[in-house]
Design a protein around this nucleic acid. Structure first.
Lengths: 295, 295
DNA sequence: GTTCATTTATGCGAATTAAGTATTGATGCG
DNA sequence: CGCATCAATACTTAATTCGCATAAATGAAC
């Protein structure tokens, strides 16, 4: 294949005009150049593309077939250039997003949906993992953006709070405290607590620990569960209670109830977090997008 | 887009080698030519494709994206040339095939299946119509090949017999003659006949007329039906009998029986037929294929 | 820190390729 | 049969691409 795009351009012009002279005019060149290009192309392919004499020009069967291909190729080339430019701008590519239980129960679906609409050429790859793991993966580059449970402040990382939830008590329906509309933290002093795995949920537990300490007690943890669903499952067994995020409200299983905590200003933040330096262009586009996001 | 395939070729080479010198060697040109082509390409697209200094060459994100496109384009170009060549040779295109009831009940399915396997790039467009209509459509170019009921000899047309059937009597099960194993034609002298529309089935009727005449009688036609299924339907109503092609054997409806005709050498030919001149290349390929077809 | 080896980029003349001008030659129409 | 039209060809000119020589940059080694 020793022809190039010029030949294809010229061929398309002639095929459209069915006239070498007019095609040349459209191409802003002289007619002989067109004649030569067409014969070169035909020679190269080894097939006559245009049935022509000095009075008439018509596409051959092969010419019609090749013409279609020519349009395809030109279109595909144009797209390729666009894609390269988009990739440069971070508007095309892949974004690996880490997320916690709280994030996926809360604002993340809306955020990702909106982002996908604005940037259809960016493939989102969401990965569930807890805050501490996400931070490791951000460091190692395994994920581009994390949605973690804060409050959090890590050097060299950018943060954006995307969700603010209240602490709430989750009880089984028969629990005595379920009769109250709101619960004072101190009332939970002697309750058996079911929490997420103390290693995995470290950031949330530290926060919760401080909250309970300031209410004058330490949680009596009787079970550690794998995730929110497991916690709720164990509570449904009436094995204990938990303090969870208010974002669980929509996802609570049958038999469980949520009660607000009285006189507690402390909130749970879910934050988007990404490496300040060494962020891919796609990450930067996502960061920009988050900038415009209203809590 | 003021670049051509040369730039794409060079870019692919560099992307593969990640080394301008070695790429140049592979391309059998000097290194500066490669350098220049790459910068031209980058300038044209407006995006840096290769992160390079005097020690290292690496694809940028945009470069990776564009490289994929380059492979696609080159492949697509190669295919386009192949398709044009195939089209020239008649190995790609469309073939409109007319066929009769007898053809589709007989050898046509096998023929078309085999042809499709040998020529997957030829789109077959089968159209049902009777012999006389097919001949009109062949004249006007509406169909490329007809499968008609012969025997037939038309000037300027090529013929190839693809199927030879016996005349058989089709009766309803309760018919007195159904008790016989074979039937003499003369026994049908006074039977009410159900045949296809006399205009549409002209060629078959003429043939059948001659056959009955030589048996010493003229058919008493009481009903004309639209197609074979309709004929059989009316026979199932016990409105009459018919003489049909033995190819109907596999398709006969419940309640009907077939009886061979004694002492009849006459056969029904199904023939492929196409215009000798002005045949498209695809038609010629089909004709060649038929040449190798064993009856 | 300096030198060296390696490799991409650039300047310039040569070679190749494409385009332009003028003309030929073929073809259909009046 | 001549004329008008239009693609093809010959030859010249312009543009592009290439190769060689070399500069400039960079990392490694001493």
């Amino acid at each position: 294949m020793n022809f190039d795009l010029r030949h294809i351009r010229y061929f398309c012009a002639v095929a459209e005009q069915l006239h070498f002279g007019r095609a040349a005019e459209k191409l802003h060149i002289a007619q002989p150049a067109v004649s030569r290009a067409i014969s070169q192309l035909e020679q190269e392919i080894g097939v006559r593309l245009l049935d022509r004499n000095n009075r008439k020009v018509a596409l051959t069967v092969a010419g019609r077939v090749f013409l279609e291909s020519c349009y395809d190729i030109q279109e595909s080339l144009q797209k390729s250039v666009m894609r390269a430019r988009k990739a440069e701008d971070g508007k095309l590519g892949q974004l690996v997003v880490g997320y916690t239980d709280f994030a996926i129960m809360g604002s993340l679906p809306k955020i990702l949906k909106e982002f996908r609409q604005q940037h259809p050429d960016i493939l989102l790859a969401p990965i569930h993992s807890v805050t501490s793991t996400q931070i490791e993966h951000l460091e190692s580059g395994k994920i581009d953006v994390g949605f973690v449970t804060g409050p959090l402040m890590i050097p060299d990382f950018h943060c954006k709070t995307v969700q603010e939830d209240r602490f709430v008590v989750v009880l089984y329906r028969n629990h005595p405290l379920a009769k109250q509309k709101t619960i004072n933290l101190a009332q939970l002093r002697d309750e058996p607590f079911i929490l997420g795995n103390l290693n995995d949920w470290k950031y949330y537990h530290d926060h919760l620990y401080r909250v309970c300490r300031s209410a004058g007690f330490t949680m009596n943890v009787v079970q550690q569960a794998y995730n929110s669903d497991a916690i709720f499952g164990l509570i449904a067994c009436e094995m204990g209670v938990t303090i969870h995020s208010s974002c669980a409200g929509d996802y609570l299983r049958e038999g469980l109830v949520i009660r607000e905590i009285a006189n507690l200003n402390e909130t749970i933040l879910t934050q988007a977090i990404w490496k300040e330096n060494s962020a891919s262009q796609v990450t930067k586009v996502f960061a920009e997008f988050l900038d415009t996001w209203k809590l």
